[in-house]
Simulated scan of single mutants.
Amino acid sequence: MASKVELVVEVKSPAEKLWTAMRESTELFPKIFPEQYKSIETVEGDGKSAGTVRLIKYTEGVPMVTFAKEKVEVADDEKKVVSYSVVDGELVSFYKNFRVTVQVTDKGADGAGAVVNWTMDFDKASDEVPEPDVIKETAAKTFHDLDDYLLKN
């Protein structure tokens, strides 16, 4: 049965700056979130366009997962939207389908701040699989922590 989880996060950073940082996540996230990411590497593609496959290795502190392979399905810099599916790793045993879509928009006309719309579509592999609350909480924390980093740099 298909399920959806949505999250809206408001940040102080301008949409363009936040979007650029997210698009540079392969290099940036292991540097600014060493407690979460051991490494992120591009396995196929250019690292940003649709069709790209990335291998994400998590630290011991991240619950339930050691790695994930994700495939970029949509990458639209003009609309600031990216969508990817998890194609390998522990999450695949919990969820038959697992797709995340992120869109960044300006909060106001003056460019002060942005809104991140994060959506996760998934199908649980079984009824025993817990709701993905940890994933949603981690996403929210990541957006807030990224905003803090960008405001200081």
Rank of each mutant, 00 (worst) to 15 (best):
V65N: 01
R54F: 00
G61I: 01
E60T: 05
L28Q: 11
V100N: 14
T66F: 01
K152L: 11
I56D: 02
D121L: 14
G45Q: 02
D76Y: 06
H144Q: 14
E131P: 07
K57R: 14
D123W: 14
T59M: 03
Y149G: 12
V115P: 10
M22G: 06
K141D: 09
G111I: 07
K71I: 00
D46R: 01
T101S: 15
A50R: 01
V8F: 07
E41R: 12
N153C: 11
G51T: 00
A114G: 09
S25C: 11
V116D: 09
K17A: 08
A114C: 15
K152R: 15
G51M: 00
Y37K: 07
I56E: 04
Y37T: 10
S39Y: 05
T119C: 11
T138C: 09
L91R: 06
E137M: 11
N117I: 10
K152Q: 14
F122M: 09
E41Y: 04
W118V: 07
G47C: 02
G51N: 00
G45A: 03
E73D: 14
Y149Q: 12
V53D: 07
E6D: 07
G61L: 01
K124Y: 08
K79M: 06
K136S: 12
L28P: 11
T138Y: 04
E41V: 14
A15P: 05
K107S: 15
V62F: 09
A109G: 14
